[in-house]
């Protein structure tokens, strides 16, 4: 892979997705979205529910096909799911019939990694997410937050270069959510800035987006309506959210979500502002 292809990790080109509702009416869930995401970027997708952010994420994952347009990852057009794109789902996706460690090993096993090697990798990531002590437990014995840790360990163990997270912490309590955000950031940053994975993170929590993202994409009714860079230094703290730049971005986000009055009328971003 050359560096030019690498820097353009995810290319989404004029992607559309229409659904047929039960009453026969066609609904455009994603409407002509184009955006380029660089390698190592942590991108949050924000928008009111039903804005198409999850649909877009599922298309990048390969679980849904675009009605029109194309998506390329690391320079290759995708068709179907692939292990270079790991997905963490909103609902519990940990397989209840496998012990915790077997869950973390699952992707490696699918690729035929030798048993001893995959166990070592799985143990490493279970330790990293703080679950070294429950590797032999059944998932039913774990709390919701612990299950999310297992899901995160699983995608990291699988060595995906792109991580797709669909409101992963939406159903968790405040404390657990913040713990898991730092677990995620630590893993993302484990090899230093040069080795960072590319992350697409869907959330409806404005503060979550501000404390995690390098860049925030805002969606509304299937359109990409804003593309905001978050330049605050890492690691970020509660105080970071009070920096003038951050407060300005927060106001913009709240306006897009309809919680604050807009300063100017809504404009649709074409072809990705950052490309």
């Amino acid at each position: 892979m050359n560096s030019a292809a690498n820097s353009r990790m995810i290319e989404i080109v004029h992607v559309n997705r229409t659904f047929q509702r039960a009453d026969g009416q066609m609904v455009k869930a994603v409407d002509n979205v184009s955006v380029v995401i660089k390698e190592g970027e942590f991108v949050c997708l924000v928008g009111p529910s039903g804005c198409g952010k999850t649909t877009l994420l599922q298309m990048v994952a390969g679980l849904l096909e675009p009605s029109d347009g194309g998506i390329a990852v690391a320079g290759r057009e995708i068709s179907g799911p692939g292990r270079e794109r790991g997905m963490v789902f909103q609902k519990d996706s940990v397989f209840p019939w496998m012990r915790v460690i077997d869950n973390v090993e699952y992707g490696l096993k699918c690729r035929g990694v030798p048993a001893a090697q995959r166990r070592e990798i799985a143990r490493t990531y279970l330790e990293r997410v703080g679950l070294g002590h429950v590797e032999k437990a059944w998932p039913r014995e774990l709390s919701g937050g612990m299950l999310k840790r297992v899901a995160i360990a699983t995608v990291f163990a699988n060595g995906s270069r792109v991580l797709l997270l669909d409101e992963p912490f939406g159903a968790l309590d405040y404390v657990t959510r913040h713990q898991l955000q730092s677990v995620l950031l630590d893993l993302w940053d484990e090899g230093g800035a040069a080795a960072r994975r590319t992350v697409l993170f869907v959330t409806h929590d404005v503060d979550e987006a501000l404390s995690l993202a390098d860049r925030i994409l805002v969606f509304h009714s299937g359109h990409l309506v804003d593309d905001l860079a978050v330049t605050a230094e890492r690691p970020r703290s509660t105080d970071s959210l009070l920096l003038p730049d951050m407060v300005a971005i927060k106001h913009k986000l709240l306006a897009h979500l309809g919680l604050e009055k807009r300063a100017k009328p809504l404009a649709i971003v074409q072809d990705g502002a950052a490309s």
Binding site: A61, L63, P81, Y106, N158
Partner: peptide
């Protein structure tokens, strides 16, 4: 969700 998760982790149809 289990099927989606397994597919995105790289499971073939037989697996």
């Amino acid at each position: 969700i289990y099927i989606d998760n397994a597919r995105s982790l790289g499971a073939s149809r037989w697996t």
